[in-house]
Design a protein around this nucleic acid. Structure first.
Lengths: 145, 145
DNA sequence: CCTTGAGTTGAACCTCGCTTCAACTTGCAG
DNA sequence: CTGCAAGTTGAAGCGAGGTTCAACTCAAGG
């Protein structure tokens, strides 16, 4: 098993376009060594990073936030299982939060449809606190989060 | 209760910037009548549409997809509760799907961290079907959805 | 050698979802 | 009627997250 991956190999393995991998490198999300001829060679560990990046993106986290999270991993040595676990703990909270939000949105929508209150009056979804009467009649849209 | 809302009123009520409301109109997401002096006047029902748009956006649905969904509402008459309910049913499925996906992502991540398999080998998260051995050894990243 | 495919760069371009701007016109209160 | 806030337009700009392109170099096989 060879130690380093070319960009083509990393792209094929990760399913991420080469242009995107170079872009991630510019943003500081992944790292590569260079051959004498200036070609990128990736540690196998970068595959983990790329996977992590795509997963995080899926749940709506920006590349900048992802970069910040990945910066918490030690650059000098290969991250251990504990390093990843520490990072994962933080992110689990994010996932939990998003799941909670989605559930609330769905349930609220169900409730609104059910009660026929999509008129935006007396509706917990659009007017959660019912304290917005300051500027004339009617509710104001308040988005959760 | 006045019948029509100005753009300023709709903006204040919905929490959406006027520029965004004009943008939505250009994309065909909302509609407005015009005064003799060419100013927009919104039916109160447009408030529902705007709220719907923001909610849908929150769960990561593009404006184009939202437009397609809203096109299913009758343009001629004010949508009834049944019209909205029909639309909501479709979207509930979307929400359920996204919730399912997020849960899976979280659980898989937990499992991967737990088993130390973030090496992308023998890992259900990165290699759900374990049938990707065609092009050399090692797993390929396969994103769900 | 020569060829061919894979890799390199910076710059330009793209879509999405808006915001900002300039240069006006309308609506309404005093 | 004046004055001013609120509305109008099209065009340009922005930030994120990339892709595409031209012009080149590198690596490996014959």
């Amino acid at each position: 098993m060879q130690e380093a991956l070319t960009i083509g190999q990393l792209s094929a393995r990760s399913g991420v376009a080469q242009s995107a991998l170079r872009y991630y490198e510019r943003l500081g999300l992944i790292r590569a060594e260079r051959t004498s001829g200036n070609q990128r060679r990736y540690h196998r560990g970068e595959l983990r990073r790329v996977a992590f990046i795509r997963i995080a993106q899926q749940v709506g986290i920006s590349l900048e936030e992802i970069r910040a999270a990945l910066d918490s991993l030690p650059a000098a040595r290969t991250p251990t299982a504990e390093d990843w676990a520490r990072l994962s703990t933080t992110w689990r909270a994010r996932l939990d939060e998003r799941i909670r939000l989605l559930n609330r949105l769905r349930d609220d929508l169900d409730a609104c449809i059910g009660c026929g209150c999509l008129s935006l009056r007396r509706c917990t979804l659009y007017n959660p606190e019912d304290n917005l009467a300051g500027e004339g009649p009617g509710a104001r849209l308040v988005l959760p989060g």
